[in-house]
């Protein structure tokens, strides 16, 4: 059982499963913008990868409890929810939007939405983290599409990815075990599947824009996204 510690000061971090600040080797430090690989990992299906990661369930249980409190107007619970998840929300916004101020605005909007819609969270429809990241991604994508042309997004996406490409490892929400499973599972995707999914997720591109960027047929990109996500889901044991 992991202990969740909360430090409410601005620099506070949440430690889940291992010490905050413990760093993992960054497999992508020298690779290209779409790097997702860990070298020592074979790409054969790995039985361990199918095991559901342990720590996120604990985190999600905590987040679910906090959402119930937030729904009743509990600001303390809201602050803890923020401390547990704000790095994820802001990190994703930065990937999609690049611009710091836009990312901050988006993060603020997301957490306001959490405050206002906590009572609408339905545990049967998904985990708290998936709920939060769904809200976050939609907000970020809406904002990037309304503020930047797709050409700008592609250019900025390419330029920025190397700087902050360490998302194969999570040291706030999640655990090393989970991070390793994710890396292994991403490895089971073809390069083109990975590329298409990432361009859509972090680039904020539509399937049509992904097709244009990769100079591929539109139906092909839809298939890559579908097949890539299904393969990833299966490998991670998401049910």
């Amino acid at each position: 059982m992991n202990t969740v510690q909360v430090d409410r000061r601005p620099a506070g971090r949440i430690a889940v499963g291992h010490a905050p600040g413990a760093s993992f080797p960054d497999p992508c430090s020298t690779a290209g913008t779409l790097c997702l690989k860990v070298m020592e990992t074979p790409n054969a299906p790995n039985p361990e990868a199918a095991a559901p990661p342990g720590a996120p369930a604990d985190v999600n249980r905590r987040l679910g409890g906090l959402l119930e409190q937030i729904a009743r107007g509990d600001q303390t619970a809201f602050a803890e929810f923020y401390e547990l998840t704000s790095r994820r929300v802001f990190g994703m916004a930065r990937r999609v939007l690049i611009d710091v101020e836009l990312s901050e605005d988006t993060t603020q909007e997301v957490f306001l939405q959490v405050w206002q819609n906590a009572s609408k969270f339905n545990p049967d429809a998904g985990s708290p983290l998936a709920w939060l990241m769904t809200i976050s991604h939609r907000r970020a994508v809406d904002k990037v599409r309304s503020s930047q042309s797709s050409t700008d997004r592609e250019a900025k996406y390419g330029a920025s990815s190397q700087d902050i490409d360490h998302d194969s490892v999570s040291d706030e929400v999640g655990s090393r075990l989970e991070a390793e499973a994710v890396v292994r599972c991403l490895e089971t995707l073809t390069d083109t599947q990975q590329e298409s999914v990432r361009l859509a997720y972090y680039g904020g591109l539509t399937y049509r824009e992904v097709a244009e960027k990769l100079n591929a047929a539109v139906p092909t990109i839809k298939s890559r996204i579908r097949d890539g996500l299904i393969r990833l889901k299966t490998c991670l044991g998401v049910s």
Binding site: E104, L132, M133, G174
Partner: peptide, 18 residues
């Protein structure tokens, strides 16, 4: 669920945002 598990970029938000 798959996306939330797989794409986990993190970055410290600006101080004072909370």
């Amino acid at each position: 669920e798959t996306l939330a598990t797989s794409f986990t970029a993190e970055e410290e938000p600006p101080a004072g945002l909370l």
